[in-house]
Design a protein around this nucleic acid. Structure first.
Lengths: 343, 343
DNA sequence: AGCCGAAACTAAAACGTTTCGCTATTGTCT
DNA sequence: AGACAATAGCGAAACGTTTTAGTTTCGGCT
């Protein structure tokens, strides 16, 4: 592999001149040609390791996601990558496959590989750990959280207005006449799950529906209308069945992410329950799905593209050294695809 | 940020000793403690740029995929990452979002960033370009193609036995009594699309069914039973409708990837056509989907995990310098989930 | 023709590691 | 105790860039 020294020898110019030209500096027209010719002849390509060693910048950004098998994150990444690329950065994506240790490891590896910034959809990692990672290098590593925030970790974040997302969904169900409304949320230590639960609660309260407990069972206990899943297919499937097996099942259901929606829809099919008709239903994210199933499902769509783009924009500002006074927290609105069942 | 020099000063040992210890070498127990203490006290972390500059290795692998919004690739990546990680490598994933220029750019950027190897699901890039990229560095960059091969590019590859996948699918439809069988394939310059089409043709030939042209139209022309889509949702949707709008529509259909299957299923729903009952149907990849829809769909499932794992294993061998005589081409079997419709 | 300032160029040091070729130290065996 | 082999530790050079501070070149003025 030829180096800048070879180019120097070949062209008869000094290292510094070559370097300057390569980085956009001015050289005499004659020398410009000599350099171009040398570069061409030698097949020279700048060694980014050496460059980064000097400049302390890699022009790369690390992106850490819980999984890459879900369209939600794919879409975020796509828009994010585009935004960063337009500014000359390359993004490297890692998935931690929902694994706690892997999440931490990926973050560490990225830092060690000297990315200039990090975009993270955090799940298990603690505020303390994140702070440690952010400060592992001399200066504070630019960092943006997407989708999920970590309690106690002060950081730029791009998130959905989850509270209003479920509020709106539940409100619609209430307006359709439902009073016994169940919800399947994710693990409550994930911020989105918590917020979505709060939105559900608030909607019920605002409409004067008792939320503390579900309908009375024959044994005098209340049945829980808030079921906590794990944001995966099986959770949706199982919890849906739990609901339907109750003595007094809810007449409507809100399911709060992609995989669980898929699971719930599957379970409904197996039980010959027609969603939207036999029971009220609002899912999340599965926009394709709601076209496929008949009758079409009501679905909360999250602005994934916008989320990626905003994350990129904020990160770019931070990496450019722009020192915004407070952490930027951008809360994006979701959109409720409201399909009302007609006979 | 503290360097190995700081560790050296703090511990009173030489650079060389510290470095040796950090790389797994032996030092006296006493010194071992001094170093550990210094590292801890200074918060030292090795600068991988500097290390890579010396060693010419980064212990990273670049993974380039057409998209990250499809579970198929997510699953491949997941298994691939696991395999590489177990061997101490980190994988960085890029998507080129089906874009030709981006595909080339991502490959170049990865090479410039000195990854030790590349895993690529290639789409538009030519054999010439790939060769250029592979040889851009001094030595030949280890490289493995997954899912798709590039005609004329000699390279280790992990692919599906696409021919037999569609052969089996079509065979099943024939056995169910169908004679007018249509297929929606992808762009024919993608190897998988081509192979799947050949499998379709061969099955028809083997069963003595004319394949050259579709059923006769009233104007004396034949209708084309092979429709070429673009492997996306809209293609599946549109081509399905094309088929159904024919004067003499096929009685069975094979749709050859995830997104197009989704599109076809959607179109079928909109036309109130029950797949598996009203017409024979075999889709690809959408294994979740086939549980959801009733009656369940017949689906060809591709061994994505195995594909990722094998790709990792082959790449590891190459990166270890193992000089296998010929390019390894591993052809994995797909699995046909055969759901026969019962009234 | 001679001078000036700007623009282009250069030499050399530095970035943080690894590694080569030695020397110093240790432990073992007679 | 002495000698020897093995092991540990060391100094310095090298990896391929960028950058600082200083030098040369050049064209335009008077």
């Amino acid at each position: 592999m030829s180096t800048i020294k070879d180019v120097s020898k070949y062209s008869g110019l000094s290292l510094a001149t070559i370097s300057k030209y390569l980085n956009g500096g001015n050289v005499r027209e004659e020398n410009r040609q000599r350099i171009d010719e040398a570069v061409e002849a030698l097949g020279f390509r700048v060694n980014r390791n050496a460059r980064s060693l000097k400049t302390n910048r890699t022009m790369t950004v690390g992106v850490v996601m819980p999984t890459l098998s879900v369209p939600f994150f794919g879409s975020v990444i796509s828009a994010l990558d585009r935004t960063l690329r337009d500014a000359g950065y390359t993004s490297f994506v890692c998935s931690y496959d929902f694994d706690r240790d892997l999440e931490l490891e990926k973050l560490r590896v990225l830092c060690n590989n000297n990315v200039d910034g990090i975009v993270l959809a955090a799940q298990h990692v603690s505020a303390r750990e994140l702070n440690e990672i952010r400060n592992a290098r001399g200066s504070e590593m630019p960092m943006v959280l997407v989708d999920r925030t970590i309690s106690g970790f002060v950081c730029d974040s791009i998130v959905i207005d989850n509270l209003n997302a479920t509020y709106g969904a539940v409100e619609q169900l209430i307006n359709a006449g439902h009073r016994h409304i169940g919800i399947i949320v994710g693990p409550l230590d994930i911020s989105t799950a918590n917020e979505r639960m709060v939105g559900y609660r608030r909607a019920l309260e605002d409409y004067g529906i008792t939320v503390e407990a579900g309908p009375l069972r024959s044994d005098g206990q209340h049945e829980e209308l808030i079921q906590i899943g794990r944001y995966d297919f099986e959770s949706g499937y199982r919890q849906f069945n739990n609901f339907m097996d109750m003595e007094n099942p809810p007449t409507a259901l809100c399911v709060t992410n992609y995989d669980m929606t898929m699971g719930a829809v599957t379970a409904a099919h197996e039980r010959n329950i027609i969603l939207g008709k036999d029971i009220g239903f609002v899912g999340f994210d599965a926009v394709d799905l709601c076209r496929i199933v008949s009758p079409p499902l009501s679905i909360v769509e999250q602005p994934t593209q916008m989320m990626g783009q905003k994350a990129g924009e904020v990160l770019l500002k931070r990496m450019a050294g722009e020192t915004l006074p407070h952490p930027q927290v951008i809360r994006l609105k979701s959109y409720l695809h409201n399909r009302i069942y007609k006979e």
